[in-house]
């Protein structure tokens, strides 16, 4: 069986990322001990000049955990937390009253990175399984790295690989939905393809019915 991502059929593009979201939903629900759903909200194809606002106002401060990708898909996976929501989950994981933390200290960053690691690896494993000829060892993530950043700066950096080849950029946004027993999950999981994967996905998207 072929292992070339260009063998993906157009109508399977969205469903592949849905599979990634499903895999991540299961892993995150186990990690938090509560049901959580991840839903692919958009496959954005935008002009570079407006990309800084894709996850909200560009000068908003957000927390983000980044994982680099190599292998069959190049690019970056970013788990982005609106500040209060990210800190609330850190409180939840650390068994503290929700809202008791207002700074990203070492413990909170560690909780965020562990969450990103669990979500990211499950997402990528599900993606690898959904791609024809999928091989898990063909998608290699790096350990997550934490930053507290301007949303616009974060996206600008993540999209730099695509910007070297195109004026338009592509990324896949996944949102989180949790039950009432969890704090509001104002998080976004961003799959930011590198140049070669973006070219493949862009071509597939153009062929979509």
């Amino acid at each position: 069986m072929s292992t070339d991502p260009t063998d993906l059929r157009p109508d399977s593009l969205r469903s592949i990322f849905d599979r990634g979201a499903e895999g991540a939903s299961e892993a995150l629900s186990r990690w938090l001990g509560r049901p959580v759903r991840l839903l692919v909200s958009a496959i954005d194809h935008s002009d570079l000049s407006v990309a800084g606002d894709l996850i909200g106002p560009a000068d908003d401060l957000v927390a983000a955990c980044a994982m680099g990708l190599s292998g069959r898909l190049d690019g970056m996976l970013l788990l982005v937390f609106e500040d209060r929501s990210g800190l609330a989950i850190a409180d939840f994981l650390l068994a503290r009253p929700i809202g008791s933390t207002d700074q990203w200290g070492e413990l909170e960053r560690s909780a965020a990175m562990e969450t990103a690691n669990i979500v990211g690896c499950a997402y990528l494993n599900a993606l690898a399984d959904a791609i024809p000829g999928g091989q898990r060892d063909g998608l290699v993530p790096t350990p997550p790295e934490f930053r507290h950043e301007f949303a616009g700066s974060l996206l600008e950096f993540a999209l730099m690989g695509q910007a070297t080849e195109q004026d338009e950029v592509l990324l896949v946004r996944t949102e989180f939905v949790a039950g009432p027993e969890l704090p509001s999950l104002r998080w976004t999981l961003l799959f930011v393809p590198g140049p070669s994967t973006a070219t493949t996905l862009r071509a597939l998207r153009a062929e979509s019915p």
Binding site: A66, D74, L154
Partner: peptide, 10 residues
């Protein structure tokens, strides 16, 4: 260079 994790083939 905001993240060290990013792979950098290009």
């Amino acid at each position: 260079r905001m993240f060290q994790v990013a792979t950098d083939p290009s």
